[in-house]
């Protein structure tokens, strides 16, 4: 052990003596893998069109990115954290404790969550209630709370195809999982009236919501901890499977996937922008105000990201699958004024 200890300190010394000269001249970004493709597209175009170096964009998940973001202020911490959900209070507290106080929140647009099966499979027209009845651990049978025994989609809703239930849902570390639980499963729980039954039986609404969002563990619902590429591979090997994807991923793989409708609405950038398609969520990134002026090109990058040419409805981000924000002008103004979160 002492050899290693000696080595570490020797290496650190060598390294530390060499760093004095090296100041960081590129923006560093980390966070959500959903925002990653958009951030890389912007970074690439930013590098091409300005004299600043191309920002370095890491993917580490929303939680991982915000954790790095909140480590402190200074050159060897990141400047921007991408997030597929708003920052949590606990994360804000960590940030404040480490001196990261002035944070700018920038909403870049919306992302839809779609349900798709293999392209040769049958057509699906779901409602949130179908998803709740198919995947929740507890459902209502004869007005009572009971274990979910549905085996085929047609057991849940006679109008759905007679296909075995098998769903690939994002694992709990994904920001997408939260949206799926709240906007699909919980919405379905309410819609089908199960929430009332659960509340009556459990005597507590919070417990009832919790019961709604607990997915069954008998192999019908499979958590995917990897990326959408893994979900796609799983669907390839089990054609009965139905996967939960981001809209942009589906848009890039329409030759392999067939998307299902929710309450009769087909997901697209238009139906999500108009609010007809119910399952969508805003995408954000967070900027350390203290780094503006310290890191060359940071403010320019942020302004470039939310400019009409990029994040607008005709820009490359929309082309890739981002639902552009109708209130983009307000975001641009907030960025220009460096407005921080309260």
């Amino acid at each position: 052990m002492s050899t290693v200890k000696f080595t570490v300190s020797a290496l650190a010394l060598i390294a530390a003596s060499a760093t004095a000269a090296a100041a960081r001249d590129q923006v560093q970004v980390s966070g959500s893998s959903t925002v990653l493709p958009y951030a890389t597209i912007v970074a690439e175009v930013f590098g091409e069109n300005t004299d600043f170096p191309v920002p370095v964009v890491e993917s580490g998940g929303t939680g991982g990115g915000l954790q790095k973001f909140c480590e402190g202020v200074g050159e060897n911490t990141i400047d921007i954290a991408n997030a597929s959900r708003p920052i949590k209070d606990a994360e804000r507290e960590t940030c404040t404790a480490n001196g990261v106080t002035d944070i700018m929140e920038v909403r870049i647009g919306y992302d839809g969550i779609v349900f798709a099966n293999t392209v040769d499979g049958p057509d699906f027209a779901y409602t949130p209630a179908d998803w709740f009845n198919a995947l929740s651990a507890k459902v209502v049978v004869d007005g009572k709370m009971a274990d979910n025994t549905a085996a085929k989609w047609s057991d849940v809703n006679p109008e759905l195809p007679e296909q075995d239930i098998l769903a690939f849902v994002p694992g709990t570390k994904h920001g997408t999982r939260e949206v799926f639980e709240e906007k699909v499963i919980l919405a379905g729980c309410e819609e089908s009236g199960a929430l009332e039954v659960f509340t009556a039986e459990l005597g507590d609404e919070d417990a009832a919501e919790e019961a709604c969002m607990t997915l069954r563990t008998d192999g019908k619902s499979v958590d995917i901890d990897g990326d959408y590429t893994e979900t796609l591979a799983r669907i390839g090997s089990s054609p009965n499977g139905i996967g939960v994807f981001g809209l942009s991923f589906y848009e890039n793989n329409t030759d392999k996937l067939k998307v299902g409708t929710i309450s009769g609405v087909t997901p697209s950038t238009e139906t999500i922008a108009s609010g007809e398609y119910p399952v969508s969520r805003p995408l954000f990134f967070y900027v350390k105000k203290a780094h503006i002026g310290e890191i060359a090109g940071l403010k320019e990058f942020v302004e470039f990201f939310v400019s009409d040419e990029l994040a607008g409805p005709d820009g490359p981000l929309a082309e890739y699958g981002l639902v552009s924000d109708p209130e983009l002008a307000a975001t641009q103004e907030a960025v220009a004024n460096e407005t921080t979160m309260q």
């Binding site: 290496l11 650190a12 760093t19 060897n76």
Partner: peptide
């Protein structure tokens, strides 16, 4: 050791090299 304590930059081959050295 290298990023938080020694203050070396993120994403740099020097840090990667040091880690792989260990």
């Amino acid at each position: 050791a290298f990023i938080n304590f020694a203050g070396l930059p993120q994403s740099a081959p020097i840090v990667g090299g040091l880690v792989l050295t260990l």
